[in-house]
Amino acid sequence: MEKIEIGQIVNTHGLRGELKIKLDTDFANERFKVGNTVFVGDLPLVVHSFRMNKGMALVAFKELLDINLVEKYKGEKVFVNREDIKDDGKGYYFFDLVGCEVIDQHGTSLGIVDEMIDTAANPIMRVNQKILIPFVDAFVKSVDLDQKQIVIEVIEGLL
């Protein structure tokens, strides 16, 4: 079963077992919906409560409703099963794009997608840790996950 990382526990919050989680997902409300199962490492846990505070998720799990039970999980990564993620109709998710080669309209390789960054305006691909390309239809012409390739149209001033 493939697991997808959705965040990392950075600290505890309060005495009732809430954990402060730095998110690595665009759909925190869906991923941490009360009753959903997520994994801290390989340990399955059921979400008891979820709220956002200063850009971080505050999550408590039914099995761990005490600060003494959760302190040992600081630094751990949080995952979901890939099959638990609903298809959004595109046929891929942003985490699928990391590792893909980006090629311009002339067939020249620009590098590998290191990260997808979600901004208020639009998502951005970070390529080779230095090139930032908006992930919008004006630039992205095709995504082929089988070939691990993304074809973009480069316009003057983009790179």
Score class of each variant (00 low, 15 high):
Glu2Lys: 13
Phe61Asn: 00
Val136Arg: 15
Glu83Tyr: 15
Glu18Asn: 01
Lys148Met: 11
His13Met: 00
Met125Tyr: 14
Phe139His: 15
Ile133Asp: 01
Val70Leu: 09
Asp42Met: 00
Met56Asp: 01
Asp137Cys: 01
Val70Ala: 07
Gly111Trp: 14
Lys62Pro: 00
Leu23Glu: 04
Glu18Gln: 02
Glu76Met: 12
Gln149Thr: 12
Asp114Ile: 11
Gly7Gln: 04
Asn128Ile: 11
Tyr93Leu: 12
Tyr92Leu: 05
Glu101Gln: 06
Val10Thr: 07
Gly111Cys: 10
Asn122Ser: 14
Arg51Trp: 10
Val38Lys: 02
Asp42Gln: 01
Lys74His: 09
Glu71Asp: 01
Asp118Leu: 14
Ile9Val: 13
Gly41Asn: 03
Phe61Trp: 08
Ala121Ile: 13
Asn29Glu: 10
Glu83His: 15
Leu69His: 11
Leu19Gly: 00
Val140Leu: 10
Lys130Met: 05
Arg16Leu: 10
Asp24Glu: 13
Tyr92Pro: 01
Ala138Ser: 07
Lys74Arg: 15
Ile21Pro: 05
Val113Tyr: 11
Ile124Leu: 14
Ile103Ala: 05
Pro44Cys: 03
Asn29Gln: 06
Val102Thr: 08
Gly55Glu: 01
Gln149Leu: 13
Asp137Ile: 07
Val46Trp: 11
Arg126Tyr: 12
Phe39Cys: 00
Val10Trp: 01
Ile131Val: 13
